[in-house]
Design a protein around this nucleic acid. Structure first.
Lengths: 345, 345
DNA sequence: ATAGTTATATTAAACGTTTAACCCAAAAGG
DNA sequence: CCTTTTGGGTTAAACGTTTAATATAACTAT
């Protein structure tokens, strides 16, 4: 069964190819009412579906949005088990779908660079999550398609960027602990890299301490990967070696989960002995036992916002390259059951 | 900066377009060693990246794999927050990437049917997850591209299908409870639909009961959505109204999490008063407190297997349509801390 | 009646590839 | 020395669209 093309429709309707194309593209002022219906009938009758590929060739589009995701160390796999990303992708998909776009998921690695993907596939736009390297930056400029960055702090005045105010988030978390009477507050976190999101959160942590007249103790920060295992081992450590520490801020919910486990395993209780506050409010946070107190970022909204901004940019035909718009999605503490109020005692 | 094409490379190297195309496609016997290097040099020099779109037009390919995902009721959003899917997608992406494919994520809805997507985008293949309707089935046949179904029981002799032996899984879970001395065993589950995965698990549950000489009590099955909330309310119900029930099988880990919470809220303890066993072993299962005993299915392996089978099918040039190969990924009980051994008492 | 519009149609070039068909010179076979 | 093969090359058609350019007939306004 041959694939049926615009040509078949034209023949069937007894008109030229161009006529069909015009009605397909809504340029109906070029075609008489009469033929419009004839063409529509033929389309229905033949079950014609236009080839996006062919159209793409001439219009230089693909109706495809690239979503670039961080990868595991070995570059073999998308870091996808983190529900964080899936939720965002879900949001992105939902909004771009309305405009007929599809998303294509990719990690970038040695073989296929971002630029490769972008140009070989003729992407209409891209959303880049979390990762950022100088090389990627150069490629983005070269590719010259609308791009929005999510959660990036470097070169954020070149590209549209959506994220959260991480410094504020770190501040809020720490402040929450302080407000509840905690004075010796630990930080369990991923690697603190210059211009990374965790650096900002770290900065917020320090600011809150300072503001409260507490002094910053480097021994109180446990810096490693943002992972459950890191949380768990830190929890054990804290419970055993730091009896004076009553509160700890984990810069990601996954870390907080590990932390709580580690603490319990060391024979202490959350929040009775040690309070913990997380960050992100992934959907698991409210299901966890005990339900996790955390800094909620509206992940879905973040994805949605990014997608909308991208679509806007695409619409205005790669015109204004939207320099350095940084959008912050609001943050909020959601109190559940992992921080104890020491003041009430 | 104009996009540079094969034409530019040809001109730069002083050869014909065809020559360039030949070396691009590895048909090197058509070109002399000498010109091969000249062409390669030009490619490097000009930074040429071939257009997959253009190639697709003539070769009738896209180097794109469709991944079709279930959607929420309102068809607005992919049911993606379930980490289950993301893990599988991650696996799929990893394997197809090796062959230069990218995946495109889509839900199907009224507007864009599967067939639309498949033919307009010229998909090279598709993986369809979990959903199945008669309409989709017809479309799949029409689209006539390699397809593999994941976790589907209907028409599984028409298409390649990878999944698990759900009946066995249900049996294993229930048997595990029985082996630990439980006799009044509940089932908390999503809707039991003909030929759905949960129906099979339900069947396994019944078989295990029967085999152990326990009688099946319809009042013991709590059938609703596969969700945390359903688990939670069922947990409350069970704790309050069924003091005789000592074990319950939740057909998904998410449900089990809710269940445990509901039970605790009703003042009982897991596993002391009530044991629960889950299904899936999503990564959260081992992080949960208490760590969840569950039937582990190797989600990553499942995705991987599906992707490999698909690639195979694509390779053999839509030849053998691989009728009805059903592949089962192995299942295994992972014992953690939510089922209590009543025998030991 | 003439020129200018307007509405509707068609033709053909272009998009960037692949690949069958063709070409030619040099080598090989007789 | 003539024919065939082979290696290395090019030409041009094709893939399925879009769209500028062009054509034609029917109106309109003068």
């Amino acid at each position: 069964m041959r694939k049926i093309t615009i040509k078949d429709v034209a023949r069937n309707a007894g008109v030229s190819i161009a006529a069909v194309s015009y009605v397909l593209n809504g340029k109906e002022n070029k075609v008489s009412q009469d033929t419009i219906v004839r063409i529509h009938d033929s389309i229905k009758e033949l079950n014609y579906i236009p080839s996006i590929t062919a159209r793409g060739l001439v219009k230089n589009t693909s109706e495809l949005i690239g979503v670039i995701i961080p990868q595991t160390e070995d570059h073999k796999q998308l870091v996808f088990e983190n529900p964080f990303y899936s939720e965002m992708i879900s949001a992105i998909e939902a909004v771009v779908r309305e405009d007929g776009y599809h998303i294509i998921l990719a990690g970038v690695d040695k073989g296929k660079t971002y630029l490769d993907i972008s140009t070989s596939r003729n992407l209409d736009g891209a959303i880049i999550m979390g990762i950022y390297s100088e090389q990627l930056y150069e490629e983005c400029k070269q590719a010259n398609i609308p791009i929005v960055l999510i959660d990036s702090y470097v070169h954020d005045n070149e590209f549209t960027n959506v994220g959260i105010d991480d410094e504020l988030g770190g501040y809020m978390a720490t402040k929450h602990l302080i407000d509840n009477g905690h004075r010796n507050i630990g930080l369990v976190t991923g690697m603190i890299r210059k211009d990374g999101v965790v650096e900002k959160r770290f900065l917020g942590y320090k600011r809150a301490l300072q503001e409260a007249g507490l002094f910053y103790n480097p021994d109180y920060v446990f810096e490693n990967s943002v992972s459950y295992v890191h949380g768990r081992s830190s929890g054990a450590l804290i419970a055993e070696k730091h009896p004076e520490m009553t509160g700890v801020f984990a810069t990601a919910d996954m870390v907080a989960f590990g932390l709580i486990r580690g603490i319990k395993e060391a024979g202490k209780e959350v929040p009775k002995d040690i309070s913990v506050i997380g960050f992100d409010d992934i959907s698991m946070a409210h299901m966890f036992l005990p339900p996790l107190t955390t800094v909620k970022q509206q992940i879905f909204l973040k994805g949605e916002t990014a997608a909308k901004l991208l679509i806007d940019q695409i619409r205005k035909k790669r015109g204004a390259k939207a320099h350095g718009k940084r959008t912050h999605v609001p943050l909020e503490i959601v109190e559940r059951e992992t921080v104890r109020n020491l003041r009430g005692d």
